[in-house]
């Protein structure tokens, strides 16, 4: 197996807008190519007694599909995002309170889970919640010829043999969460992780730029 040059291995253009909604405590929309997700965060706020955890905050992640009601697919993605957020948020600083993260899919053109993760991280940053590290999501697809494609579109996802999404932390570029589909070898998995780690640096640089722009007070 061989990794080819730059063809396919690039991130689509991405954009982000923070605090665009007035009601939530933190909100962000993240766009990767045509895929776009809107995220809103409420909290820390009072929690239902049945969901209360005595030593940390309860994090709830809700994902709203564009058409119809949330189904199993949304539930599994909610879980992936929740586990990543729980790993990076310092939940023990807000015991017996609730954090709610709502993700609204605005358009799905591939790499939806990684876009959701990025939107979630930006929204959590906007809400000013204490976190031990930032995280980002990178999706890799392996096509039938064994080439790695980062940030695939919906058409590329459909043609791929395997699809992997990793959440990577900003401190040591370690893998916080992985969600895979399809079959692949150990070597391919390690290659995809290495690609995602180098791609994550670009995304973290984008995070840094957008925060710098936000607090620079000049356009």
């Amino acid at each position: 197996m061989e990794v080819y040059g730059s063809s396919g291995v690039s991130l689509r253009e991405f954009g982000c807008e923070q605090s665009l909604l007035s009601r939530p405590d933190g909100s962000a929309s993240f766009i990767q190519g045509d895929t776009s997700v809107l995220a809103g965060v409420y909290g820390p706020a009072e929690v239902k007694v049945s969901k209360e955890i005595y030593d940390r905050a309860t994090l709830e992640v809700l994902m709203q599909p564009k058409v119809g009601l949330p189904s199993v697919r949304e539930r599994s993605q909610e879980q992936c995002v929740r586990e990543t957020c729980e790993a990076s948020l310092l939940l023990s600083l807000h015991p017996r309170s609730s954090l709610t993260l709502i993700l609204q899919v605005l358009h799905d053109d591939g790499s939806l889970l990684s876009c959701s993760l990025n939107a979630a991280c930006m929204a959590l940053m906007d809400a000013g919640l204490p976190m031990s590290c930032l995280f980002c999501g990178v999706t890799c697809a392996i096509d039938t010829e064994g080439r790695i494609i980062t940030d695939p579109t919906a058409a590329q996802e459909k043609e791929s043999r395997a699809l992997m999404t990793f959440a990577i932390d900003s401190k040591e570029h370690r893998v916080l969460m992985s969600a895979t589909k399809g079959s692949f070898s150990v070597n391919e998995l390690q290659q995809c992780i290495a690609v995602s780690q180098s791609a994550s640096e670009k995304i973290f640089q984008f995070y840094r730029d957008s925060v710098r722009r936000r607090y620079s007070k000049t356009l």
């Binding site: 291995v9 954009g15 923070q18 790695i148 690609v195 791609a199 730029d209 722009r213 356009l219």
Partner: peptide
């Protein structure tokens, strides 16, 4: 000021 956009970026591999 809250919005930022970045063009397509190649990934070093």
């Amino acid at each position: 000021i809250t919005a930022l956009k970045m063009d397509e970026t190649p990934v070093e591999m």
